[in-house]
Write a protein that binds this DNA or RNA. Structure first.
Lengths: 223, 223
DNA sequence: ACATATGCGTTGTTATAACAACAGAAATGG
DNA sequence: CCATTTCTGTTGTTATAACAACGCATATGT
C-alpha cells in the first residue's frame, strides 16, 4: 500500500503516511482490482464504504427507465466516490459505478468514523473534517449545475454557465473543460441545438466562440 | 438563549445544553433579528458563518439575469443555511437568503471548527460529524433533483420523480409534499404543462392522481 | 500518409413545452 | 355564511428544443 500516495489525497490531507497506516485498520480498508466495464457499485445498493481510486478510473452512470445511459461524473486516482451514501447509511444508490479502465479501488468503511465516538482514534476527527470539505465542495458543484439548468431556454442556460465561468476565471476570455457533447450533457440539452444556439449568439455579437474557447462581449452590463 | 431548543437540532444532536453553552463561545455565536423581506445574505457575499433559524423562516432565492426570482428552498426553525459556503471559505454565494417572516437567526462561525485543529474543543468533533451528516443529506437531495430533471420531457421527469417517491414511501399509493406550482418549480417545467401531462397520464391509465395524492399503476413492471 | 474515428456546425422537420387566458373548485378569512 | 384569494385543469397558439441526417474539419492511430 502506497501511504505516500494516500497522504497527498484530499481525504488524507494533513496526515502522515505513518498515521495513515494505523487509520486504515480502523477503516477496515480493503483493496480490490477491477477490469474495464466491471460494475463496482450497482444502483440500489446500500453501502457503508466509500471508494478511493488508487489507479485507473471509474464512471458514475445513471440508467433511466428506458435504458439510456447517462454519465454523470468521472473519478480519477486519489479521488473518492460514494462518500455521500457511505455517510448517510440506508440510502440506496441512484447510480452505477463502473470501471472505465483497469482500476484498483480502496474501500474504506466510514460507519466507524461516524457512528462510534469520533474520538475513538484521534485522527478520525481530521478525516471527518476532510470528508466534510469534500462533501461541501461536491455540494457547491451540484448547486451550480442546478443553477445553470434552471433556465428553460438553451440560451439562458448558456448565459448562466458562461458568465459563471467568466467570473470564476476572472476574465471574459476563457477556456472551458468540456467539448460540445459534454457541455450539452451538463446543461441537459441536445448537442446540435446547443451548437446552433452558440453560433446564433456568435452572429448576434453576444459572444465570440472558437471550440472550447470563449469571449464574452455585450453581456458586460450584466455585472 | 434556549439551549434546550438547540440540543434538539440536527446540528447539535448528541450534545447536552450545558456543552452547547460552552461551544457557542468557540463559535462566536451571534444572534440577530430580521423583519420580513430583510435580506440576510446577498448573492456574491463570502461568508464564514452558517445561520441557524431560531424562529421564523428564510427563503433561499436566486435572481437570474432578467430579474426573475426563483425560490430554491425554505429553511425553518432548527435548520441551518449557508453551511456549505461557510465550510468552503472563499466561495461567493449564488443565492440570496431572505426572511420570509419576522425571524431570529443564530450565526455560528465555522472557520474555527474547520481550520484550527478540531481537537481544540473536544466537542468540535461531534459538531463536525453532525455537519458532515447535514451536508451529505443535502447532497443527496441535490443529486435527486438533478436526477429527476435530467430527462428532457415532462413525462420523463414526472415518472422519475413519482417512482422515486413510491420507492421512498414504500407504496404505489402516496402523497407528495408539493402543490402543482411547487412541483413544477422543482422539476423546472411550466405549471400548466405539468397539469396537462398529469391528466394525460391519468387518461392513459398510467397513474391515478387527485391533487397531491398519487397512485402508480401500469409502471409496475419498471421495478 | 492513409484510413478511421470524433467532434462540430448546419439544415429542415417534427414533437413538445412554454405561454396566455380562462373557468370551476377549493381554501381562506372575515 | 359570503367574499375573496389561491389552486388547478383545460384549451389554443406560438416559440423553441429535440431529432435525424449530412458534410467538413480535426484528431488518432498504424
Amino acid at each position: 500500500m502506497d501511504f505516500l500516495f494516500l497522504s497527498k489525497t484530499l481525504l488524507f490531507r494533513g496526515t502522515s503516511p505513518r498515521e495513515i497506516e494505523t487509520m486504515l485498520g480502523c477503516l477496515h480498508a480493503e483493496q480490490k482490482g477491477y477490469k474495464k466495464s466491471d460494475v463496482i457499485y450497482h444502483a440500489g445498493d446500500r453501502v457503508t464504504s466509500l471508494g478511493m481510486v488508487l489507479s485507473g478510473g471509474v464512471s458514475i452512470e445513471s440508467d433511466d427507465f428506458w435504458g439510456n445511459k447517462n454519465i454523470l461524473d468521472h473519478v480519477g486516482p486519489g479521488q473518492v466516490f460514494a462518500e455521500t451514501y457511505a455517510c448517510v447509511p440506508g440510502e440506496a444508490l441512484m447510480v452505477n459505478v463502473v470501471a472505465s479502465e483497469p482500476t484498483n479501488i480502496l474501500f474504506l468503511d466510514t460507519s466507524h468514523l461516524i457512528q462510534i465516538c469520533s474520538n475513538a482514534c484521534e485522527h478520525h476527527s481530521k478525516l471527518i473534517g476532510n470528508l466534510l470539505l469534500i462533501s461541501a465542495q461536491k455540494n457547491l458543484n451540484l448547486s451550480r449545475r442546478i443553477f445553470h439548468t434552471s433556465s428553460k431556454s438553451i440560451r439562458g442556460r448558456l448565459l448562466s454557465y458562461l458568465s459563471d465561468q467568466a467570473i470564476r476565471k476572472g476574465s471574459r476570455d476563457f477556456t472551458i473543460p468540456f467539448n460540445r457533447q459534454q457541455l450539452a450533457d451538463y446543461l441537459s440539452v441536445d448537442r446540435s441545438a446547443l451548437s446552433n444556439e452558440l453560433s446564433k449568439m456568435n452572429r448576434e455579437g453576444l459572444i465570440s466562440v472558437d471550440r472550447n474557447h470563449f469571449l464574452l462581449l455585450e453581456m458586460a452590463e450584466t455585472f
